[in-house]
Design a protein around this nucleic acid. Structure first.
Lengths: 155, 155
DNA sequence: TATTGTTATACTCTATAACTATA
DNA sequence: TATAGTTATAGAGTATAACAATA
């Protein structure tokens, strides 16, 4: 018996990164489909969530935090503004800067979207018991912290 | 004190799916960048790996397995054939069908790409000890099996 | 000049569906 | 008619870089 080759997994499954991606893509795709039924993209959900958590956030800060260009953020904001979920206000001191905030409608919609995310989580991770879920979360957080992953994933 | 709100995580981090995606996107992006330095896309790496594991595989089977359309697979094959890493042979019994196989050059390149994947894994998951890595793999496999995830992720 | 946000353009990846050829 | 693979077209999403307004 060799030590290195498990013989069964035919190459790709040997890589942890591959296993992670396979599972992650599956959950994310399901989530994206659920959102899409409400005509919401993942980027919109992430931007809306971030704007809710950081009142008066600026587009530039969102771009940094999300790992997108300002142009890309600008377009997402166009969509969210079109839905009347956020408003862009010009800062009094510096007219170049925009301050973002959720409208009442945006505040009402956010928990509905969060519930979609919650249901998606439940459906997918429900096959793990509480302790396993905890372990998984702990390992993911350890990886996040070790590598200083602060970016909010959009794609 | 409320029971539901952990107060600290501001919304997004409450979702396991979100944590998973954040970590997965980070590893995958790093991997994609490493591959790109060799002018190889993730889709090309996946298709090449699959063709190596299943000699004489047909494009249609790859499309099913990868969750892509046949048209998309056709284009990836064009690229791989252009690099002389695979060849398409017409099946003798049925001229509609193609049988794929790696060229000698493709066979030589594959382990080099696998090493890139390996190094990427090591760099990223190295902060977990052997047991933690094992636990993570076990949890991911459990999720894969429970949800019958067979698709090989491409994006 | 430097900075914030917008826009014009192009690129990549993928799907849909029409198409060719074989069966 | 049905099937395997290709190709034409279109759409989503993003980046790059030129741009306007402001500082």
């Amino acid at each position: 018996m060799t030590e290195k080759e498990p013989a069964a997994p035919p190459g790709l499954e040997a890589h942890l990164g591959y296993c992670l991606r396979r599972v992650s893509n599956h959950v994310s795709a399901a989530f994206a489909r659920s959102l899409q039924q409400q005509h919401v993209s993942v980027a919109e959900w992430v931007v809306l969530s971030q704007a809710a958590v950081r009142p008066e956030v600026r587009p530039a800060e969102l771009a940094d935090r999300l790992g997108l260009t300002r142009g890309a953020v600008s377009k997402v904001l166009d969509k969210l503004e079109g839905k009347k979920w956020i408003v862009r206000r010009t800062m009094a001191d510096d007219n170049r800067v925009q301050l973002l905030s959720l409208t009442r409608q945006g505040q009402r919609v956010l928990p509905q979207l969060a519930e979609i995310a919650g249901r998606n989580d439940e459906r997918f991770f429900g096959c793990l018991d509480a302790q396993e879920q905890d372990t998984l979360r702990r390992l993911l957080l350890k990886l996040s912290e070790f590598h200083c992953i602060r970016d909010v994933p959009v794609e």
